[in-house]
Design a protein around this nucleic acid. Structure first.
Length: 286
DNA sequence: CGGGACTCCTGAGGGC
DNA sequence: TGCCCTCAGGAGTCCC
């Protein structure tokens, strides 16, 4: 599901509602996520207070007193916050919200502020891991490239990385070791806005094009965050509110439609790169 | 190195 | 109605 803007929306929502809360109970309904939840997971979390909530790339990090809880939502992971008014909620891996069946609740965190935090994940590609380490010692985070909003993510960094890369630009932008937080939707949108073809080879990019790419990477992510992220299928923040950046998509999912640029009106094509859909305008993306 | 195929998993949507 | 197929905001591995 989620890329940087969606994770940032989730983080802000969590921060408002559960920062400083104490975890008073944890129930694991299904330990078979991407990585198996360890048997000591609940025991190690009960009694801990949430002291801060940060985002790095597509990861959420809950800071506890001496521990860190790392959360990755994979493709379909969600965090819900519900009022702790239904005593039955801990007994099942589903519940009804306004008569809608919510399935695939895998972990419940009962908090001392009247809320329950729920980890829900249909496809179970996401994971949660508890660490006694410091942030800079966590393997998943150590390998990540720069955040797009980091000042060091600039022309020099980009040029240097791309200089002798034979990779195409789509896969370069998708590579979390280069720039972290972009995923399939936003890379499609960024390349479209930059008028750059997804198959362009890294070392062939001109300085001017790199500048444009950097500009749109930051700009599109910022706008997406301001719109509450993208809700195609069913992304929502932990309070259940959807984002609406999907209404502003210019290419993603627009195969066979005309380019939205009035001066172009070319056709939007779809190709597959590394098994992922790539949408682009065959006329204006060079 | 790079890219394609395939893996994890469930469900929505289209075609017939 | 149902069945079969493809595809899905991620990311890793294996193979050529």
């Amino acid at each position: 599901m989620p890329e940087l803007p969606e994770i940032e929306i989730v983080r802000r929502s969590l921060f408002k509602m559960i920062n400083n809360a104490k975890i008073i109970n944890v129930k694991v309904k299904n330990e078979n996520l991407r990585y198996k939840i360890s048997t000591s997971f609940s025991k190690n979390l009960i009694g801990e207070k949430i002291l801060n909530i940060k985002r790095r790339s597509k990861y959420l990090i809950l800071f506890l007193k001496k521990k860190l809880l790392l959360i990755h939502l994979g493709m379909s992971g969600k965090l819900f916050i519900v009022r702790d008014c239904d005593k039955k909620i801990f007994k099942t891996s589903f519940y009804y919200d306004q008569n809608i069946l919510i399935k695939h609740n895998h972990i419940y965190f009962k908090l001392n502020n009247g809320f329950i935090l729920i980890y829900n994940d249909v496809r179970r590609f996401g994971f949660l891991k508890l660490y006694n380490k410091k942030l800079d010692q966590i393997p998943f985070l150590k390998e990540l490239g720069l955040e797009p909003f980091n000042k060091k993510f600039n022309l020099n960094y980009f040029k240097k990385y791309v200089a002798n890369k034979k990779k195409n630009i789509k896969n370069i932008l998708m590579d979390q070791k280069f720039v972290s937080g972009l995923g399939n939707i936003y890379v499609n949108e960024i390349l479209y806005m930059s008028k750059i073809h997804p198959l362009r080879i890294g070392y062939n990019l001109k300085e001017k094009e790199i500048k444009i790419l950097i500009y749109y990477i930051k700009k599109i992510l910022k706008i997406a965050i301001s719109k509450g992220g993208s809700s195609i299928r069913d992304f929502s923040n932990p309070k259940g509110k959807s984002g609406n950046f999907q209404e502003f998509f210019r290419v993603y999912g627009k195969e066979h439609k005309n380019c939205s640029r009035i001066s172009c009106r070319g056709r939007i094509k779809r190709i597959f790169l590394s098994n992922r859909s790539s949408f682009y305008c065959e006329k204006c993306q060079k």
